Amino acid sequence: MSNFSSKPWWMVPANFNAPMELYIEEEQEEQIFGRGDMYLRSIEVHSHSLIQVESWFTAKGQTRVSVVGPHHARQWLMHMFWSLGHPDSSQKAQGLQMLQRVQNQQLTKNDFGTSVRMQPNTGDLSLASRFSGTVCLDVLPAASFPWSGCF
């Protein structure tokens, strides 16, 4: 599934441009991907993406997470990561719901559309303090998303 076309997402070269990269703490890695990354494969399949998890990548012991796939899938996953790391309990609860959904079932056009409408406000630089390094999402030419790009 790529941009909701009949072609599988992995057959579209543009889905491999500008991977999303972020650095997370060990506890968040285990929360998201499970012990021994047991949920990694189901998250990849259900979100139409390929995720590389490199544990203990930095001197601080953080994990580098790289994601390739359709823009909407990377955006949805970024929103999930952002929500799970948010200090607000309602935002964190939303992130947990998103996590359970992607671990257990295929994401739909409706899921991706909902994520776009509920994007985090990146004017709030507290996101940058919870994720280390650079988080990049490429910008879709026909769309103007307020949090696409690097921050």
Rank of each mutant, 00 (worst) to 15 (best):
A143F: 08
N110E: 14
A142D: 11
V135I: 14
Q105S: 12
D111A: 03
S115E: 01
T114R: 11
S129N: 03
G113A: 13
C136V: 11
N110M: 14
D138M: 06
F145Q: 02
A142G: 10
V135W: 08
F131Y: 00
V135Q: 09
M118R: 07
D138W: 09
A128V: 15
N121I: 13
K109N: 07
A142V: 07
F145E: 04
A142E: 11
P141N: 10
F112R: 13
V135N: 06
S144C: 04
V139E: 13
G123D: 09
T114C: 04
A128M: 00
N121G: 05
W147F: 10
P146E: 00
G133S: 01
R117W: 15
Q106H: 13
A143N: 01
S115H: 09
C136P: 06
Q119G: 09
P141I: 01
C136F: 13
L140F: 00
S148N: 04
Q106M: 07
L125Y: 10
P120S: 10
L125M: 13
F131M: 11
D138L: 03
L127R: 00
S132H: 12
A143K: 11
G123R: 13
S129V: 08
F145S: 02
A128S: 14
W147Y: 14
L137H: 00
Q106L: 13
P146D: 00
S144D: 07
A128R: 12
F112N: 09
Q106C: 14
L127E: 05
D124V: 02
T134F: 14
A128N: 10
S129H: 13
D111V: 00
Q105K: 13
L107E: 03
A128Q: 08
T108S: 01
A143I: 14
F131K: 01
P141C: 01
K109A: 09
V116R: 11
T122M: 15
S148P: 02
V116D: 03
T114G: 04
L127A: 02
N121Q: 10
T114Y: 02
G123V: 03
W147H: 03
S132D: 07
F131L: 09
L107K: 05
L107F: 12
L125C: 03
P141A: 12
F145R: 05
D111Y: 10
